[in-house]
Design a binder for these strands. Sequence first.
DNA 1: CGGAGCTCCTGGGGGC
DNA 2: TGCCCCCAGGAGCTCC
Length: 312
Amino acid sequence: MPELPEVETVRRGLEQHVTGRLVTDVSFGHPRAVRRQPGGRAEFRDRLRGRVLGIAGRRGKYLWIPLHAPGHDPRRGDDHDGSALVAHLGMSGQFRVGAPTDPAGGDPPHAGVGLHLADGTDLWFCDQRTFGWVCVDDLDGDGRPTAAGHVAPDPFEAGYDPDAVAHRLRRRRTEIKRALLDQTLVSGIGNIYADESLWRAQVHGRRRTDALTARQARSVLAAAQQVMAQAMAAGGTSFDALYVDVFGESGWFDRSLAVYGRAGEPCPRCGTPIRRESFMNRSSWFCPVCQSAPRRRKAETGPTTRPSAPGG
DNA sequence: CGGAGCTCCTGGGGGC
DNA sequence: TGCCCCCAGGAGCTCC
């Protein structure tokens, strides 16, 4: 569920509330939380202890906090030390700022790792479904972690070129929704915003990328940027307590969703009931009138229409 | 090498 | 009421 707008909401919270804080110690909860760390928990703790947290960065759904030498002030522009705390929220990962929330006074629910800060507060990474992870990784010359090296620019980066992405999109030989979910083409889009973007652009998710017009490809990408910008302004999309900001507060954008999770409800554009279909072992929601489905391929319909003719 | 499918995981909710 | 199964899905991995 955390897609780009939700991750950005978390990033802003981290920037506002933990920048400049010194990490005094680290504690561990669920064993799956620390991943991609060659030296495991010991290395994770060693690389964090005594570091100062910098200004959180993000690309797509990847989030990181650059680390600084003690005494350095990231707000003053002091350089990071070439490393960062990197996180992917997966399905249900959260960062929570403040004292432990468990009434018994112990670790918060679904605790993954806890960073104990010099001012007495804690920064917890919690994750119910354990698809998320954290590690301490090196930063490259552009200030991005190597763990996110394969991830394409997201639509809100200066280096994002929508025409170039539209071109690459149309050279793919797959379906448009699959391509939108591929983080190496354009990053930050997940199932919710893929469906919302396709609805806004009036393109069916099963349309072939190599059959889209340039106008359609650009339209889908523009819709993705637009819907995610609006979601960010609303603080992200929350269906339940799984996605929340650094203080556990929900966003409001779910009230603005046109199709996602709305099977049977009227399409906001034409009134036709929204349809749900199974796709890639999950769900897609779309308007069957606004988003006309592609014709089924010959191979699926069987050899009934006409006998093969020589020469073609 | 690009595309497609499998798999990791847990709690909530619906059905019986 | 209680149990069981389904469902949510990001992305790395493997296979073709």
